[in-house]
Measured scan of single mutants.
Amino acid sequence: TSSHKLRLYERDDYRGLMSELTDDCACVPELFRLPEIYSLHVLEGCWVLYEMPNYRGRQYLLRPGDYRRYHDWGGADAKVGSLRRVTDL
């Protein structure tokens, strides 16, 4: 099985509160109590970021690497509604 891990930060450049995720999350704002995510670091696996909860809205593919600001993943703003692991490519 492949492993997945990413870290979410409330501010750009990996500042502020950090939360780690290793499984799908249908509602990021509810789980982490963060209305917006300004940076993230994908440590393992690929993920799909959705701008709205319950895997809706615009989708962004996140490969392992650094995303210091939301425009690094192509986002128009810092809204992160849900995240899902990519298990098949």
Rank of each mutant, 00 (worst) to 15 (best):
S2Y: 11
S2N: 14
S3H: 07
S3M: 07
S3Q: 07
K5Y: 13
K5W: 06
L6H: 06
R7D: 03
L8Y: 03
L8Q: 02
L8F: 09
E10Q: 14
E10P: 06
D12L: 14
D12Y: 10
D12E: 13
D13V: 01
D13H: 13
D13I: 03
Y14E: 04
R15H: 11
G16N: 06
L17P: 12
S19F: 14
S19Q: 11
S19R: 13
S19A: 13
S19E: 13
E20V: 08
T22P: 01
T22H: 07
D23N: 11
D23I: 12
D24G: 02
D24N: 04
D24V: 03
D24R: 04
C27A: 10
V28E: 04
V28H: 00
V28Y: 02
P29D: 13
P29G: 12
P29K: 14
P29T: 10
E30W: 06
E30C: 08
L31D: 10
L31K: 11
L31E: 10
F32Y: 15
F32V: 14
R33P: 13
L34Q: 09
L34N: 15
P35L: 07
I37M: 12
I37Q: 15
I37E: 15
I37C: 15
Y38H: 11
Y38K: 09
Y38N: 09
S39E: 01
S39G: 02
L40W: 01
H41K: 13
H41F: 04
H41P: 02
V42I: 06
L43S: 02
L43H: 01
E44S: 14
E44W: 09
G45C: 05
G45I: 03
C46A: 13
W47C: 00
V48R: 10
V48T: 12
L49P: 01
L49D: 05
Y50N: 00
Y50H: 08
E51C: 02
M52G: 10
P53H: 08
P53Y: 01
P53A: 10
P53S: 08
N54E: 10
N54H: 09
Y55D: 01
Y55A: 00
R56D: 13
G57L: 05
G57E: 03
G57M: 00
G57W: 00
R58G: 06
R58L: 01
R58H: 15
Q59Y: 14
Q59E: 09
Y60L: 07
Y60P: 03
L61I: 14
L61Q: 15
L61S: 12
L61A: 14
L62E: 01
R63W: 04
R63H: 07
P64I: 00
D66Y: 04
D66C: 07
D66G: 11
D66V: 06
Y67D: 00
R68V: 05
R69G: 14
Y70N: 13
H71M: 10
H71Q: 13
H71N: 07
D72M: 05
D72I: 03
D72N: 07
W73H: 07
W73V: 05
W73P: 04
G74Y: 03
G75I: 09
G75F: 04
G75A: 15
G75D: 02
A76H: 13
A78C: 08
A78V: 05
A78H: 06
K79M: 12
V80K: 03
V80Y: 02
V80M: 05
G81I: 02
S82L: 06
S82V: 04
R84I: 06
R84V: 05
R84A: 09
R84Q: 10
R84N: 00
R85P: 03
R85G: 02
R85K: 14
R85W: 01
V86E: 06
V86T: 10
V86F: 11
V86K: 09
T87Y: 13
T87L: 13
D88P: 08
D88C: 04
L89K: 08
L89V: 13
L89A: 15
